[in-house]
């Protein structure tokens, strides 16, 4: 059972549905019409480009090219995280990048090699989508976690220094802030996991079914995707925050200015 292709005309007809949100955004003078239309145009352009280079990645299926593509994804994700968190590149680039690489490699290869038992873990059909979904989720979680961590550390810095001044090590003094960051970053994913399949059918499962998989295969992939994205995200933020503790505080534990 294959997937029905969408012709350009049909695609344009489908894109016309965006007129509904655009109309209401215009009617209520939200000031979001321009940004919505721009975002739509960007999405169309970016996805066509992605389709183009994925076509060649799939055509060549070369492990070196696939790995090179993932390296590019890591750089782009790091740059995006730095932009969205407004943190200093000189201090934060290394912790964020190492966090992404650690999460992607350890969890990605565990899934591809041990769970899927692939002979060639670099096979483009699995390697690129799995690493892609891991990178996307790690990026979102890192941005929320780092923003929460630093906003609270700035706002409640007196409490941080209170703890240092009463015998805490830097690791001990930042732990309430790490706790807040983890709660904020992981609550949505954990809440989603709890209602998975009840409130809405998840994306991976729908994609698999539309792609021709049977529902029992689709649900297994969906479970795995949820588990690997949460695990990789947790691993990446743990590594990032561990390195941040070493780089973003001075020898006496004072908070360095890490904002751009």
């Amino acid at each position: 059972m294959g997937t029905i292709d969408i012709s350009i005309e049909s695609l344009l007809a489908g894109l016309l549905l965006m007129a509904i949100p655009v109309y209401f955004l215009w009617k209520y003078r939200t000031g979001m019409v321009k940004s919505t239309v721009t975002a739509l145009a960007r999405m169309v352009g970016q996805l066509f480009l992605v389709g183009l280079y994925l076509k060649y990645l799939f055509l060549w299926d070369n492990p070196f090219l696939n790995v090179a593509w993932v390296i590019i994804m890591v750089f782009v994700a790091t740059e995006t995280a730095l932009t969205r968190t407004k943190l200093k590149r000189s201090i934060m680039m290394c912790p964020i990048m190492v966090g992404f690489v650690t999460g992607a490699i350890l969890v990605g290869f565990y899934f591809l090699g041990i769970v899927l038992e692939l002979n060639n873990v670099f096979s483009v059909q699995y390697f690129i989508p799995v690493l892609g979904i891991l990178m996307g989720n790690m990026l979102g979680v890192n941005v929320i976690a780092l923003n929460t961590f630093y906003s609270h550390l700035r706002r409640e810095s007196t409490y941080y220094y209170f703890m240092l001044g009463n015998g805490a090590t830097v690791q001990e003094a930042v732990s309430p802030f790490v706790k807040q960051a983890l709660v904020r970053a992981f609550s949505p994913a954990i809440a989603n996991m709890a209602v998975m399949g009840l409130v809405a059918l998840p994306g991976t499962m729908i994609g698999q079914i539309l792609g021709g998989s049977t529902p029992d295969v689709a649900i297994k992939y969906q479970m795995m995707i949820i588990v690997i994205t949460i695990s990789a995200s947790m691993l990446s933020i743990a590594v990032t925050l561990y390195l941040v503790r070493r780089l973003a505080f001075d020898a006496d534990g004072c908070i360095k200015n890490v904002s751009q």
């Binding site: 609270h152 007196t158 409490y159 209170f162 001044g165 090590t169 309430p176 020898a251 006496d252």
Partner: peptide
């Protein structure tokens, strides 16, 4: 510089206007 933890092990410190992350 870099050795202040030695002092902090033997001190208690109460700053003004504490706000709590808990």
């Amino acid at each position: 510089k870099g050795q202040m933890e030695k002092l902090r092990r033997q001190t208690a410190f109460l700053p003004q206007d504490l706000s709590f992350p808990c």
